[in-house]
Simulated assay, not measured.
Amino acid sequence: MGTDERGRENAGGRTVPEKGEEVGMLDADDLRSIDETILDYLADGRVTPVYCQKRLEDENLKFTRGYVHERLARLSEHDHVRNLYETGLYELVDDPRESEGEVSKS
Rank of each mutant, 00 (worst) to 15 (best):
D79C: 15
E59F: 01
H78N: 13
V50Y: 00
D40M: 07
T64Q: 05
L39M: 06
R46Q: 06
L72W: 06
P96R: 05
E77M: 15
V81L: 00
A43R: 10
R46V: 02
E86C: 11
E70W: 06
R82L: 11
E98Y: 12
E59M: 10
V50F: 01
D79G: 14
L39N: 08
D44E: 11
E100N: 09
Y90Q: 09
Y85R: 12
R55I: 07
H78S: 12
N60P: 14
D95C: 07
R65Y: 09
H80S: 08
E59D: 11
G88V: 11
D94R: 11
D79Q: 15
D40H: 08
Y85P: 04
H78M: 13
D79A: 15
D94F: 13
G66K: 06
R74C: 10
D58P: 12
T48K: 00
D95R: 04
R74P: 09
A43P: 04
R46Y: 01
L75I: 15
V47Q: 02
L89R: 10
L61H: 07
R82C: 06
L84I: 15
T64M: 04
D95P: 09
L75Q: 11
F63A: 04
Y51N: 02
P49Y: 02
S76W: 10
E70G: 05
G45K: 04
L89S: 10
R46H: 04
E59R: 12
A73I: 14
P96K: 05
T64S: 10
D58T: 13
R97I: 13
K62I: 10
D95W: 01
L72G: 07
L89P: 08
S99A: 13
H80W: 15
D44H: 09
E70A: 07
Y67E: 09
G101K: 01
T87R: 00
F63C: 02
R65Q: 08
R82H: 14
E91S: 13
K54W: 00
D79H: 15
L84P: 09
D95M: 06
Y85I: 13
Y90F: 15
E57W: 01
Y90P: 10
L56N: 03
R46G: 03
H78K: 14
N60Y: 01
V68G: 00
V68E: 01
E59I: 10
N60H: 05
E98V: 08
R55S: 05
Y67L: 11
P49E: 06
V47G: 00
H80D: 05
V68Q: 01
Q53R: 06
A73S: 14
H69N: 04
D79L: 14
E100Y: 11
Y51D: 00
L72T: 12
A73Q: 14
S99Q: 13
D58S: 15
E86P: 10
E59K: 13
F63L: 03
E70H: 05
R71N: 03
V50D: 03
G66V: 09
Y51H: 02
H78T: 14
V47A: 01
H69L: 02
C52P: 04
P49R: 00
